[in-house]
């Protein structure tokens, strides 16, 4: 049997002290247990962190602080989240299945691994799983793969819906390591694959995500998340868009735009935001702004539809947001 140590630290300090290379934190287990069964992840030490006091939603001071062990379903159902950040509630609602959302944690959601079929199949090479072994996706089946941020080593998308919404909201993650705590912008937290696709996060050995911090953004009350997929439920995004728009009359004065299913990490589209600001909130504006989204996309053999789908997803999200006015 492939054996591993199973420990249940009682404090964050204890958890971080026990962690190191070869260890894995266990929260909801909806990614880790799955990947351990597939032998994609083979930690020698599993640290069950569910007893740690990393729970709670806090809105004092304007923003939103979410404990890393909060369950997706609880966050999605929280009236404060739904009111102030509809985009977050919707992104969570559209994730996974009801059963999974009840188990899965917020921290784990942000750290979930790609759904690339080659990554999950140990009988194939994969640079992310086995550095230097090669990437069958780039010349193989890549209909679901990334058109933004991919390298010659990896074109796997980041699967989280929540992360896309959080990136649009300029969220930060609080990390706790042996050397202390630090806060990182979620946008910078995810690394591009480059030649090292196995390095996915700005996470030092043993560091633990303890909290997600969403800055105050009163106009995010007008925000939405649109997710496009083949199957209507229980499926990852081929394309998704998190958008928030602040209007002055009919004129867009501020905008936040990020997309999922397109990039190797959640992809903020500041060019689209700039193209929206100062213009009237009409479909023509959205179409023109969305056109800037496809800059720098590099399609593979089966995902050439994605840049066009990204534009259309953005337009749809902006139109649907209009209907909530």
């Amino acid at each position: 049997m492939r054996s591993y140590a199973f420990e249940r630290p009682g404090t964050v300090t204890d958890a971080v002290r026990r962690a190191g290379s070869g260890s894995a934190f266990l929260a909801g287990g909806t990614t880790l247990v799955d990947l351990m069964k597939l032998e994609v992840m083979t930690p020698d030490r599993v640290l069950d962190i569910n007893r740690l006091p990393l729970r709670g939603l806090d809105t004092t001071g304007g923003g939103l602080r979410i404990g890393a062990l909060e369950r997706m379903s609880d966050v999605a159902a929280d009236p404060r989240v739904r009111r102030a950040y509809p985009v977050l509630g919707q992104a969570l609602d559209l994730s996974a299945s009801g059963q999974l959302r009840t188990m899965a944690s917020i921290g784990g959601n942000l750290l979930q691994r790609t759904r690339c079929g080659y990554f999950r199949d140990v009988s194939t090479p994969c640079n992310k799983r086995l550095p230097g072994s090669g990437c069958p996706a780039i010349g193989g089946e890549n209909r679901t793969h990334a058109v933004l941020g991919a390298s010659g080593s990896c074109a796997a998308t980041h699967p989280s819906d929540l992360a896309v919404a959080l990136v649009a909201l300029d969220a930060k993650v609080r990390l706790q390591g042996r050397e202390g705590a630090r806060t990182v912008d979620l946008r910078d937290f995810y690394l591009l694959p480059g030649d090292t696709p196995h390095l996915e996060h700005d996470l030092r050995p043993g560091e633990l995500v303890t909290e997600v911090v969403v800055p105050a953004l009163p106009w995010a009350r007008r925000s939405t998340y649109v997710k496009i997929r083949d199957r209507r439920s229980f499926e990852f995004a081929l394309s998704s868009a998190a958008v928030a728009v602040r209007l002055d009359g009919d004129t867009i004065v501020e905008a936040r735009v990020a997309v999922g299913g397109m990039g190797t990490r959640p992809w903020r589209l500041t060019a689209v935001e700039r193209a929206l600001v100062g213009r009237r909130a009409t479909e023509e504006t959205y179409v023109a702004a969305a056109a800037t989204a496809v800059e720098g996309t590099r399609p593979l053999r089966h995902n050439a539809y994605k840049p066009e789908l990204m534009k259309r997803t953005l337009v749809r999200a902006l139109l649907e947001l209009e209907q909530t006015r």
Partner: peptide
């Protein structure tokens, strides 16, 4: 000779919502 979608995660069947 590898099936590209030989898992329940990749081979999609309808769910209730479909």
């Amino acid at each position: 000779g590898r099936f590209a979608a030989a898992t329940m995660a990749d081979y999609l069947v309808p769910v209730h919502a479909d």
